[in-house]
């Protein structure tokens, strides 16, 4: 009959009206400033800089390598390197960003900076209430405004942060082990000055981490290279021509030292290429 549909509809809205006062499930509204839904863990907005410890300036993980600045598609990052150095989390002296600005009005939240950073220094923030009445200065965040503690990082992305921490700890352990080994080697070298560097290098090469403390790896490579370059032209010769002066004067210890660098030389391009890539 004409009108029964209208009555049905009226009953439906009446049910909704009454139900909205009774059942909580009906009212899906979240009254935002007072109530908030928890953000999903994968939420991201704009990048921030992670620091360890209490002092944001000292603990900043960033070493101003400028990879993120170069990779940033909209070019919203600006970095100035420092002149001096400060120790990083493993205690190694590193340069640090004297200036690190991100223009979040330009940033497109692509997360590329986070992906390219070899030092786990830049991460994505979840903070979204960034409205400001200053259109230019207010949205240009400097390093102080960008700095967030590692605890904060744990708070917003717990899984990711613990992964990062584990990785860093592993690296640190490795570096420490290496340093220990290097120290031992140094001690050995002190004991036997001419041959000291050679035994240390085969250990150092495979240990060179993926993110590779570049200085350490490079140094190791250099150490490896130096004797190799010195002995390589000489080394092949002694085998056929044993009657020459130089070869004849070689002691067995010297021979061993000359062979080892040549062996390591094969593995070198790989080891050297890694830090660069």
């Amino acid at each position: 009959m004409l009108g029964d549909g209208i009555l049905k509809g009226l009953a439906e809205t009446a049910k909704n009206f009454a139900g909205s006062f009774v059942s909580k499930e009906r009212m899906t509204t979240v009254e935002y400033p007072e109530e908030r839904l928890p953000l999903p863990e994968a939420a991201r907005n704009f990048p921030f800089l992670v620091y360890d410890g209490d002092d944001w300036e000292k603990g900043l993980r960033c070493v101003a390598c400028q990879i993120c600045e170069k990779e940033c598609p909209p070019k919203c990052i600006y970095i100035e390197k420092s002149k001096d150095k400060k120790p990083d989390y493993v205690g190694k002296p590193q340069i640090y960003p004297a200036k690190f600005d991100i223009d979040i009005s330009v940033c497109m939240s692509c997360q590329i900076c986070v992906e390219v950073c070899p030092f786990e220094a830049i991460k994505m923030n979840t903070e979204f209430e960034l409205a400001t009445d200053d259109r230019f200065g207010g949205l240009l965040l400097d390093r102080k405004e960008l700095a967030r503690s590692n605890e904060y990082y744990h708070q917003i992305h717990p899984t990711e942060a613990s992964e990062v921490d584990a990785r860093l700890a592993e690296e640190k352990a490795k570096v420490e082990a290496k340093a220990k080994a290097a120290a031992e080697a140094a001690a050995a070298k002190a004991a036997a000055p001419p041959a000291a560097a050679a035994p240390a290098t085969p250990i150092a090469k495979p240990a060179a981490p993926v993110e590779a403390r570049p200085a350490t790896a490079a140094k190791a490579a250099e150490v490896a290279k130096a004797p190799a370059a010195a002995t390589a032209p000489v080394a092949p010769k002694p085998v056929p021509g044993t009657g020459s002066d130089g070869a004849a004067s070689m002691t067995p210890e010297d021979k061993k030292a000359a062979e080892t660098p040549a062996k390591t030389n094969e593995g070198e391009p790989k080891a050297q290429g890694e830090p660069k890539e």
């Binding site: 809205t13 009446a14 909704n16 009206f17 139900g19 909205s20 006062f21 009906r26 009212m27 899906t28 509204t29 009254e31």
Partner: peptide, 13 residues
């Protein structure tokens, strides 16, 4: 507010 309730919203508050 009434129409809001019918649509399971809060309406102006």
């Amino acid at each position: 507010k009434g129409v809001g309730r019918m649509q399971n919203r809060l309406g102006p508050n």
